[in-house]
Write a protein that binds this DNA or RNA. Structure first.
Length: 895
RNA sequence: GCAUGGGUAGGAAAGUCCGGUCAAAUCCGUGGGGUUUAGGACCCCAUCCCUUAGUGGGUUCGCAGGUUCGAAUCCUGUCCCAUGCACCA
């Protein structure tokens, strides 16, 4: 309601004025760096943004209250296509459009009351930011981490630019979902493959990353251990190399497949009759979009015989060489040994082309016969038809065969990765200009450091065709920095993922003179908690890790990994579907803020679901949150007049409430620490209920509960927290208060457990009653026995069951008592005895004529069954090993 | 196909690591009552099924088995769902 809105505005102003969220590096203080993935400024805040920032702000506020020096910044990933598309559509320029959106977005963020240090904010489209993109590019160039090459690249028609491999999702453009084509172009690459091993290995260091993200990166890197095998081509001096991880099947090789893009293919068919056919085939493959080519739905494999034979390295047999579309150019060597018996793809191809099948690995269960096989056997087994290796297991053969290849110089162990170098050229305007000049005489020249940044022109024409930078003469035409002659500027710009690969470093020290102040940056880094969407699991998160390592190797920083903890938040759904503009089902968070204020929006979104799970949007949900906040508010304000004459009480109820308050403090703290914020809110709701039910609203406990509740509310509903804090205390900021600390001493276990315990006893008694009724007996014996004696008891009574018609059952109350006595020895001295007493008293309620309660009186029984003492001992040590506290339980004997 | 994470009351979502206090927190929804000019809001009670004044009984935590005196919780198998990867040799 407007009330909450007014409060929000009031406190946002106060915070700003008092500058309470501005921070400085201070080596004396413990730091904590909370970071959300910065947004692309599309203008309006999406509900997913609200969720993202509500999580981050809750943590930032929590850590701040715990006494940490908290860095919590916000910025804008402001370069990129949408601005340019807007320019094509309308009369605006990308710059104008972008900064307008940033303004709008920032306003909304401020309305929500996030505790950012706005002083450190920037946009990647600021010249003072992208200057350092260019600077880094040059440093990387000098280090050999940047290179230009002619390559087959992924081309998106609708974005009219190339894409990195990471940006191709299922053969489609990650942004516009258009099908991606192959195109041959000269482009700039970053040598991320120089860090493949480290990127893979260091995943182990990331203990606090979600397993699935690490797994996705691992898969993306795609390491395969295998061998490269050299094979001579018959009647020539040529040697080709195949890569395989299954060299144990080498004797099953019946043909070779080379990828259609491989240079050798055209070489080989030169001047031959099949040339035409082969060329046609290659063209066909190239024209196919990636999605068609890699579809698993298509089973048939297309290929051609190249009229060449390779010689088997061990047997010297002639092996025909084919080219086929199922072999990829850029994995391994682009050539594979085909073993139809043990690889499904090879099997399919062999069947279609009538190629022989040789079984070289036999599974253990049955014997394979080549003629009868319906599918390939891809498992490990025992080698057959494999010369000297026949009879060996696959596992052993892998090593033995690799050894033999290496010794004979016919091959060596090799590792292949799926990860390729990162293509960063983009044929677009609104990106960081690549600081390179092409001179006819001097070739590729870097723009001298002093001349950085290479600025984007103020204006350009956006026709939607080609890169607008090409048509800006002042930009494209330049002089060679070396010979001062006529030269042309690189008009490709950088992939915007370049910008976001190091932006978290810039927040640490917003200086303009350097890329960053080392000392400050090293103080703040690494990011302690990073929060963002799962969609960046590979692209952004692997690039950022790569940059951090590369920057370390430039000796600019000493940090290996940028993000200590990672939380990947779930999506916000409506009717089970992701919300999106294109589906037209997006909820505007602005409406809720207007209706209920920012606190409500935040509490609702945090309470509705665990941050990692998906969140189902509901209209009612925000009302709940709103009511909850109002309830706290009125609970406090209605009783404010009673606060002055606080009474000290010492009733059981009061002690129970005190315990409850402490439990809430403990649980809430732990939940926020684990970022299980929905549970934290639930805890606060429970405490609110308890406080409301508590009758003595003028008591000290009640008010200490209220105070703690208000403080613990700050991370979730900061404005209301401040308002209520001011009302109780008269001054100050709750945001600057100390987070309530759990005080074990204030928990009154005795009282707390009493009821619980009595209930247990009651249950046991009731159980006894029931048994009595069923068994129609009038006599009951209750033994209180350690658990390790149960086995014995059981045996004992099994006998009696037969001979004397007696039964045994086990209760639980005494166990409870015993456990408590053990873990809380001092507080609960004599609890067990009490329990026994209670149990005796309970007899009154049971219509049993005779009931004995005996504690550990089993010695006599043991004597009766002396042979069983060994059993008892064994059970006892087993229990103790398992660390069971004090497994004392009553055994009930019915006679 | 491979990998990971899940399946809990009308809905969302705790509890599962560490078995007994679990017919199972919390929130919504639904029903009843109080307050209110009405609506809303607020407060109280109920909400798996049968039964009672309190109470008692029955059936539940995807499905099927197993371990145990005792299983939502441990073990085995199985089905379903979500996400990611996928002609990677």
């Amino acid at each position: 309601m407007t009330d909450l809105e007014k409060i929000a505005e009031k406190w946002q102003k106060k915070w700003k004025k008092a500058k309470i969220f501005e921070v400085k590096a201070d080596s004396k203080k413990k730091k904590y760096y909370v970071l959300e993935m910065f947004p692309y400024p599309s203008g309006k805040l999406h509900i997913g943004h609200v969720r993202n920032y509500s999580i981050g702000d809750a943590l930032a506020r929590f850590k701040r209250m715990q006494g940490f020096n908290v860095l919590y910044p916000m910025g804008y990933d402001a370069l990129g296509l949408p601005a340019e598309n807007a320019a094509i559509k309308g009369k605006t320029q990308p710059r104008e459009w972008t900064y307008q959106r940033i303004k709008e977005m920032k306003k909304q963020q401020e309305m929500l009351g996030f505790s950012y240090d706005w002083n450190r904010s920037y946009a990647t489209s600021d010249e003072s930011y992208y200057k350092w993109n260019q600077w880094l590019f040059e440093k990387f160039y000098e280090k050999g981490l940047v290179y230009k090459k002619n390559a087959i690249v992924n081309w998106c028609d609708s974005c009219s630019t190339v894409l990195a491999n990471e940006q191709v999702v299922n053969g489609k453009c990650w942004r516009c979902k258009n099908e991606v084509k192959e195109k041959e172009l000269e482009q700039w690459f970053l040598k991320i493959t120089g860090y493949t091993e480290e990127l893979l290995k260091d995943l182990n260091k990331l203990e606090h990353w979600p397993e699935r993200v690490k797994l996705m990166q691992e898969n993306w890197i795609g390491k395969s251990n295998g061998v490269n095998i050299k094979m001579k081509i018959k009647d020539t001096k040529e040697v080709i190399e195949t890569f395989t991880t299954r060299h144990d099947t080498i004797y099953g090789m019946t043909f070779i497949v080379i990828s259609p893009e491989h240079k050798k293919v055209l070489d080989w068919v030169k001047g031959k009759e099949i040339k035409g056919k082969v060329k046609e085939f290659i063209e066909k493959v190239k024209k196919e979009s990636l999605i068609e080519r890699t579809s698993t739905k298509r089973k048939e494999k297309r290929g051609l015989f190249l009229e060449k034979y390779a010689l088997h390295p061990f047997t010297g047999k002639e092996i025909p060489v084919y080219t086929a579309d199922f072999v990829l150019q850029d994995f391994g060597t682009g050539i594979v040994q085909a073993v139809p018996a043990h690889d499904q793809r090879d099997f399919d191809f062999a069947k279609e082309n009538n190629l022989p099948i040789i079984v070289s690995v036999q599974p253990e269960e049955k014997e394979l016969k080549a003629e009868e096989m319906q599918e390939a056997f891809e498992g490990y087994g025992i080698l057959a038809n494999s010369g000297e290796f026949s009879g060996m297991s696959s596992e052993k053969a892998l090593d033995a065969i690799a050894d033999k290849l290496e010794k004979s110089g016919q091959g060596k162990r090799a590792i292949a990765y799926k990860l390729r170098d990162w293509l960063i050229s983009r044929q677009r305007f609104w990106g960081t200009p690549i600081p390179v000049i092409y001179c006819e005489k001097c070739g590729v020249q870097l723009v001298p450091e002093k001349e950085l940044p290479v600025k984007l022109p103020e204006k350009a024409e956006f026709t939607g065709k080609g890169n607008p930078l090409n048509s800006v003469k002042e930009f494209a035409e330049t002089k060679c920095p070396k010979c001062k002659g006529k030269a042309r500027r690189e008009t490709d710009t950088m992939d915007t993922f370049f910008d976001s690969s190091w932006y978290f470093l810039k927040y640490c020290s917003p200086t303009k003179e350097k890329i960053f102040e080392r000392k400050e940056t090293e103080y703040w880094m690494p990011v302690d908690q990073y929060i963002g969407g799962i969609e960046h699991a590979i692209m952004h998160l692997i690039y950022a890790r790569f940059f951090t390592k590369a920057i370390r190797d430039l000796k600019l920083l000493k940090i290996d990994e940028p993000f200590e903890k990672l939380l990947t938040q779930g999506m916000v759904l409506k009717d089970g579907k992701a919300m999106s503009k294109s589906l037209g089902n997006a909820v505007d968070p602005g409406e809720i803020i207007e209706k209920f204020g920012p606190d409500t929006a935040r509490v609702f979104i945090l309470f509705a679901s665990n941050p990692e799970s998906e969140l189902e949007w509901s209209e009612k949900g925000s009302e709940t949150a709103f009511r909850f906040l109002n309830r706290i508010s009125s609970l406090m304000q209605e009783n404010l007049n009673k606060a002055k004459k606080k009474k000290k009480l010492n009733s059981k109820k009061e002690r129970l409430l005190q315990s409850k308050i402490q439990r809430t403090v403990k649980n809430t703290t732990e939940f926020i620490e684990k970022l299980e914020l929905n549970k934290a809110v639930s805890e606060l709701m429970q405490l609110t209920n308890e406080l409301q039910k508590f009758e003595e609203k003028n008591s000290e406990v009640f008010w200490s509960g209220i105070e703690k509740l208000i403080l613990m509310l700050n991370p979730f509903a900061p404005h209301l927290s401040e308002e209520l804090w001011e009302k109780t205390k008269g001054k100050g900021f709750s945001s600057l208060e100390k987070w309530p600390e759990f005080d074990k001493k204030k928990i009154d276990l005795t009282v707390e457990k009493e009821e619980e315990f009595l209930n247990s006893v009651k249950k046991d008694v009731e159980h006894i009653k029931e048994l009595v009724k069923k068994e129609k007996t009038e006599k009951v014996k209750v033994f209180v026995a350690p658990k390790w004696k149960w086995k014995l008891l059981k045996k004992l009574f099994k006998e009696k069951e037969k001979t004397e018609n007696k039964r045994i059952e086990f209760g639980q109350a005494m166990k409870k008592a015993a456990e408590l006595e053990k873990t809380h020895k001092k507080e609960l001295k004599g609890f067990v005895q009490n329990a026994v007493k209670k149990l005796n008293e309970m007899q009154e309620f049971i219509e049993i004529k005779e009931m004995e309660v005996l504690k550990e009186n089993l010695k006599e029984l043991e004597k009766e069954f002396e042979a069983e003492t060994e059993l008892v001992k064994a059970e006892k040590s087993k229990e103790q090993k398992a660390g069971n506290a004090f497994p004392l339980k009553p055994a009930i004997l019915i006679e």
